[in-house]
Every structure is written in structure tokens, then in C-alpha cells.
Nucleic acid binder design. Structure first.
Length: 273
DNA sequence: CCGAATTCCTGTTGGC
DNA sequence: TGCCAACAGGAATTCG
């Protein structure tokens, strides 16, 4: 499940290898994955375009194609592989971009949740989904006051931190780790979280995410041979996937519960409120 | 308007 | 051993 650190790792691995390449052909095996849904339009707009840069925003990958943008979301299991014309079609290959130099970029996604969307450059920031996105953990505009204001809700703090319109990039793994770091119980109502704890959430988000990027993300239930998905942060996890194991801080067994349908791990002693 | 539940999808896991 | 329901979850959509 790629979250911000995994997506950033993919971007860093991919950008130098696709930069300045020009799309010559596209094969799509699963139509619902592309926007616009029309294969003819999708192809017509992309073919002939050159990759001028690759960026990331939250969990989105942005391919700058000079005058338009290809916006990719990996969702749960999206992965990129590089190959050439002789590379056989993979089992879960859904989209293949062939470049004029003969190399190919393959999009692989077991659960078919990912999306590839064409956007106008001018419309990117002013339309869905970017118009509703919050701040990156590293953004200086992400202040305790801003966060406190966003927490005026009855929802649980974990649910709110997963909401991409507030803080960008946290998914189910890192939100558990951030809440452990900030010593807040995932089920605590957002409106009960103090300004001081907001400061802590922000500091912990920056700390956890930057450390995870340094280590190339986490490899949980993931293959290790695709681009960028061979991280080591899974060895740094304090609570996620550690049900029944002892807290490194206080030796209390880690608990697992459900929060809004999501598997949630926490230490009942370190995270009291 | 708000928040919870459902939906998309398929490989893996656990119970019987 | 084999079968099958339950499970995993980001974000859009539907429901109450």
C-alpha cells in the first residue's frame, strides 16, 4: 500500500529512467483505469508527448508532459516496471507506455484500483483532485493552528489524519506510527486533541515520513523487484502489524482494533488519550 | 452538512 | 486436504 514515502521512492527511482523519453504507443488492458475513459482520446492526447519531469503530491505521481499532465495514483498495489519491446505481458499488467527509444514503462496492479488521468496543466491545481488536497507534512503552512482548526469534528483522530484534504500522504501504516509517536490513541475524538498535541502530530508526521523516505519506504506484503518498492522502514515500525508483540517503550502488548473498518494498531499504555 | 457504510478488486489467510 | 468466507484498504460514492 504505497503511501507518501513509497510514492516518493518510486518517483526517485523512475524519474531518471524516463526523463526526456517520448511516448510512441500505449496499450491499455483495463479501460476503467484511465481518464478520460475513451481509449482513442487517451492515446491521442499522450502519444508524441515527452516526459519533462516527474513530481509527487501526497500519494499522487505527476508526469509533466510539456503541455499536459499524466496523473497517476497507485492506490493499493500499483507498481511500475521498466522493460523493452521483448518484455512479455505480465499477469497483472494493465497499461504499457512504449517510448520512441524502444523502452517500455509497464503499469502493474493486482487489484486494479489505481488510476491514470490526463489533466490540463492550467487545470491541475484548480480542479479535482488537487483542489481539495491539504498540505505536505513538510509544508510550512502546516501549523498547529491550521490543524487544530481542521479537528473540529466528532470523527476519530485516525480517520481525520487519513483525510487527504488536511495532511497529505499518510495512509494506514504511517498514521498508526504517527499516532504512536505523538502518544495519541487512534480512537480519540479529533475535537479533543489539544493544540499542543497538534504540534506533536505535525512534528511526528515530519519525523516518521522523512525517516521512511530515507529508508526507501516500507515493504509490507509487497514484491521487492518492482521500481522503488524495496524499502526498509518496515523494520522501524513501532506498532503497525505488531499485534501481541511488546511495545519497545513499555513492554505492553500492542493491541489491534478496527477504526472505521481499518486495521489499527496502538499501545494502550503509551497512547492513553 | 456530517459521518458512517459501501463499493471497487483479487491474492492471501484462517476456520472448519 | 480442500473449500470458501473473511480480509486487506484509498478514495469515490451512497446512505442515514
Amino acid at each position: 500500500m504505497p503511501e507518501l514515502p513509497e510514492v516518493e521512492t518510486v518517483r526517485r527511482g523512475l524519474e531518471p529512467r524516463v526523463l526526456n523519453k517520448t511516448i510512441q504507443a500505449i496499450t491499455v488492458h483495463y479501460l476503467p483505469m484511465i481518464r478520460p475513459l475513451s481509449l482513442d482520446v487517451f492515446k491521442a492526447r499522450l502519444i508524441g508527448k515527452t516526459i519533462a519531469a516527474m513530481r509527487r503530491r501526497g500519494k499522487y505521481l505527476v508526469f509533466d508532459l510539456s503541455d499536459i499532465i499524466l496523473l497517476v495514483h497507485l492506490r493499493m498495489e500499483g507498481k511500475f516496471y521498466l522493460g523493452d519491446e521483448t518484455t512479455p505481458k505480465m499477469t497483472h499488467e494493465h497499461i504499457r507506455y512504449t517510448f520512441t527509444d524502444g523502452s517500455v514503462l509497464i503499469y502493474h496492479d493486482v487489484r486494479k484500483f489505481g488510476t491514470h488521468t490526463i489533466k490540463e496543466v492550467d487545470a491541475l491545481e484548480t480542479t479535482h483532485p488537487f483542489i481539495n488536497l491539504g498540505y505536505e507534512p513538510s509544508d510550512i503552512r502546516l501549523t498547529a493552528t491550521y490543524l487544530k482548526n481542521k479537528l473540529k469534528t466528532d470523527r476519530k483522530i485516525k480517520t481525520v489524519l487519513l483525510d487527504q484534504s488536511i495532511i497529505l500522504g499518510l495512509g494506514n501504516i504511517y498514521v498508526d506510527e504517527v499516532l504512536f509517536c505523538a502518544k495519541i490513541r487512534p480512537t480519540t475524538r479529533a475535537k479533543r486533541v489539544s493544540l499542543k498535541k497538534c504540534r506533536s502530530i505535525i512534528a511526528c508526521s515530519q519525523k516518521v515520513i522523512s525517516k521512511a523516505i530515507q529508508l526507501g519506504g516500507s515493504s509490507i506484503r509487497s514484491y521487492t523487484d518492482s521500481l522503488g518498492i524495496s524499502g526498509l522502514f518496515q523494520n522501524e515500525l513501532n506498532v503497525h502489524m505488531r499485534e501481541g508483540e511488546l511495545c519497545y517503550t513499555c513492554q505492553t502488548p500492542i493491541k489491534k482494533i478496527k477504526v472505521n473498518g481499518r486495521g489499527t494498531y496502538y499501545c494502550s499504555k503509551c497512547q492513553q488519550y
